[in-house]
């Protein structure tokens, strides 16, 4: 029941209109090194609660690297080193007392290429709740799986073949399955690393709609190289360039009235 109440509770807790959203995650002076190479040169950024923040910029600018810092996925790379302060609800996530497993359960991630486990659709979604002990008993798990698939907008398409392998789905469906998998552990933040780059336009439209719906309950950070996508789905946009964050602001403002000429150049397609 825990998981479900969790989902319910969040749905009820939408912020009231007019109130400025709180800051969910905060980065101050974040630097990342891969061996001797510096990938990020001191990033300051606030991620606001229950909003979609888009990170844009030319490839190699460090936006994915920054995203991977937010749930410490960079820990899995031997040579990566992170400096600076990064908080979740005001707590330093690189603090020794923070448990990385717990952190990643709270800050979920969806990857560039759909990466369903070579298991059934059901097992893919139930995997997270299972390892974290979020569902007691089969009935509860069934419910979590159904809820998550519904939220990911996949339920109607797969409800009759939950036992079939997740790798048998189409690319767009696979990516929604991965989103369902991430939702199933009731994260507070969902990180998306170019979630549509491997998908066709129709599947992309599906995912974008989904992101817009998910905003009600989750804080979302999305990396994209597609500016139209950023404009469509996000409320705030940060522009990265050569390992620096050039500019951040409301999406509308960034796209209509950028302050920095690099941002302007990128948005108008002078480079990218």
């Amino acid at each position: 029941m825990v998981a479900q109440t969790q989902i319910q509770a969040r749905a009820d807790a939408r912020p009231q209109g007019g109130v400025a959203p709180a800051v969910k995650m905060e980065a101050r002076g974040v630097k990342v090194f891969y061996g001797a190479k510096q990938a990020l040169k001191g990033i300051d950024l606030d991620v606001r609660d229950r909003q979609v923040t888009a990170l844009i910029g030319p490839s190699g600018c460090g936006k994915s690297t920054f995203l991977r810092c937010l749930n410490r996925m960079n820990d899995t790379i031997d040579i990566a080193r992170v400096e600076g302060l990064m908080t979740l609800d005001g707590q330093d996530i690189y603090d020794r007392s923070i448990d990385v497993v717990q952190l990643r359960a709270r800050v979920g991630m969806v990857f560039q290429k759909p990466n369903p486990f070579p298991k059934s659709i059901y097992d893919n979604v139930s995997y997270g709740p299972k390892i974290h002990g979020l569902a007691a008993g089969k009935d509860e798990m069934d419910e979590v799986v159904e809820k998550s698939l519904q939220r990911a907008g996949l339920w109607n398409e797969v409800k009759d073949r939950l036992r079939e392998p997740g790798t048998g789905l189409s690319g767009g469906q696979q990516q929604r399955l991965c989103i369902a998998r991430a939702i199933a552990v009731s994260p507070e933040v969902i990180l998306m690393d170019e979630p549509c780059s491997a998908l066709d336009p129709i599947a992309t439209a599906h995912i974008e709609e989904l992101i817009d719906e998910l905003r009600a309950n989750y804080t979302i950070v999305i990396v994209t190289h597609n500016m139209q996508q950023a404009a469509r789905v996000s409320q705030r946009t940060a522009f990265f360039h050569l390992g620096e964050m050039v500019e951040v602001g409301d999406t509308e403002e960034i796209f209509t009235n950028p302050h920095d000429e690099r941002t302007q150049g990128y948005i108008t397609g002078r480079y990218g």
Binding site: A22, Q91, R106
Partner: peptide, 20 residues
């Protein structure tokens, strides 16, 4: 500021004793 966020939530499931 952060307090406000936490109080927004119901029971934070990842901080329960059971989860620990």
């Amino acid at each position: 500021m952060t307090d406000a966020v936490v109080s927004d939530r119901a029971v934070p499931v990842y901080q329960t004793a059971e989860f620990e």
